[in-house]
């Protein structure tokens, strides 16, 4: 996709999470990434105040998937006025769990020598799609049958990649695995599996009409409240 992009899970561009106005001059931009099986919060800190900033630290509130910093925030030198620094904070998913609204909401506290600042961000769920998420075919069929119809959610993605191969490859780079593929009456059907860091499995059926840029996505999950967020992540991956 983007220039110089490495192959891997899709990473959205950084956006401003803490505006300087609310951070007494501290501006924080960030995004979430999954690289080599690990989750990162990629951050940029900018000092827009007139004084030097130092003594940075970060903490998360309890959240739906137990996301927590896996190491202290490494900003080792003070940040002079108008200076920026980038830092990649490794995360794990063994923190305290509390169901958030929305499910992918994360409350963050950052402190420096001036004050403590709080902000909320939402993370795309595909950062939690694990590398061993390809379900065995037999297990897929049994699970698909076993999950009741009322746990199935249906969505549409417009502006999909133009072929089932392109869709499958793009999704696989973000750990959405194609378990089987069929063509029925000219429609391409992809059966896919996703496993989240907390062990929840998602089963997906993607249906594409040749020549149509849209794709019908059906999701089956034993925890159906996650399906809308899985769909958002799939849509984000397919459109980028």
């Amino acid at each position: 996709s983007g220039t110089g992009a490495i192959i891997g899970s899709y990473v959205a561009p950084k956006s401003v999470w803490l505006h300087a106005m609310k951070g007494k001059g501290l501006e924080i931009s960030g995004t979430f990434a999954r690289r080599s099986g690990a989750v990162f919060m990629d951050l940029q800190f900018t000092n827009r105040a007139l004084q030097v900033m130092s003594d940075f630290a970060i903490q998360f509130n309890r959240n739906s998937f137990g996301l927590a910093p896996a190491a202290p925030l490494q900003i080792l030198t003070p940040l002079a006025p108008n200076q920026s620094t980038e830092v990649s904070l490794p995360l794990n998913t063994v923190g305290s769990v509390m169901k958030m609204e929305p499910l992918n909401n994360l409350q963050v506290a950052v402190k420096n020598n001036i004050d403590v600042f709080y902000f909320s961000v939402v993370y795309p769920l595909h950062i939690l799609f694990v590398e061993d998420g390809k379900m065995e075919r037999q297990m897929f069929l049994a699970t698909w049958k076993d999950i009741p119809n009322e746990n199935e959610a249906q969505f549409q993605v417009r502006d999909c990649p133009p072929s089932p191969d392109a869709v499958s490859n793009k999704l696989q780079a973000s750990n959405v695995f194609t378990v089987a593929r069929r063509t029925v009456e000219g429609q391409d059907m992809l059966y896919q599996s996703i496993k989240l860091t907390n062990g929840i499995w998602l089963l997906a059926e993607l249906r594409m009409q040749p020549g149509s840029p849209s794709c019908a996505v059906s999701l089956k999950c034993r925890a159906p409240e996650v399906s809308p967020f899985i769909f958002q992540a799939i849509e984000m991956v397919l459109k980028n």
Partner: peptide, 20 residues
């Protein structure tokens, strides 16, 4: 390749979804 019946099972699933 061993025919384990799963190919056929996926075909039936896809057909049932297209023509419920």
């Amino acid at each position: 390749e061993l025919d384990d019946g799963l190919d056929e099972a996926f075909s039936r699933l896809a057909e049932s979804r297209t023509n419920p």
